[in-house]
Amino acid sequence: MKKGFDFLFPALLGLALLGLWEWIVAARQIPVYVLPAPSAIAAAFADNFTSLMLSLLATLQVTVIAFIAALTAGVAMAILFSQSRLAERTLYPYAVILQVTPVVAIAPLILIWVGFDRVETALVLIAALVAFFPILSNTTLGLKSADFNLLELMRLYGASRWQILWRLQLPTAIPYLLGALKIAGGLALIGAVVAEFVAGSGTATGLAWRIIEAGNRLQIATMFAALMLLAVLGVTIFAALSALEYFLLRHWHESVLKPGR
């Protein structure tokens, strides 16, 4: 019942806002190239359905590949850090520098180095760069958070480094990693969009390019349609990662369990 209300009230609010929007645009006769009404956006969406969907797929592909690359690299580096203090001290400052430098500023360099003939690779690289740091930093923290008594117990039973990593440190890090993934999923999408904006010219085919192109042609309704698809994509990624989190933690983690059990 409560779940129903969780869904019902936001939906009602959304409908009310759309209605108000439609009414204001009609009542004040706002031109379509300034603010299109929801009905005009829906029409633009229907007219450009195929090209918008192809763009959605292109952006989704960059986002997913970048996300997987960031996940792999972030976890691998966190494991390296957990095994070697020296590696952590040496490399961590550079990871921080990469993180704090705005990606928009690095993106043109990456595009030049990777080359405009391989713009897809450059887009993935830029998006992965944005998503990488939260995964590295959270997983590193998680691997260090293993229960000290369990660690001693495993040592008493003659556990190897590898066994301690696999049976204690990695499971401990899973909730930390999943928390990071929810942030990184959104960041990968933002990274992909930013990269497309920077790449600009006709080489890119994603939703961001669709927004630039529609903007240049003053097709504001199409712009809104592309924007809406981006929002839907972002929410879907977040929901999928939340579902994964629930699935992996449902038996044991405090964050998922109901109190009073």
Partner: peptide, 20 residues
């Protein structure tokens, strides 16, 4: 108790054996 919260009772009790 110092148990692994992600593992069931059997897996927890089996830990020393798994390590060996």
């Amino acid at each position: 108790p110092t148990l692994m919260p992600w593992a069931d009772a059997l897996t927890n009790a089996r830990l020393p054996l798994d390590l060996k």
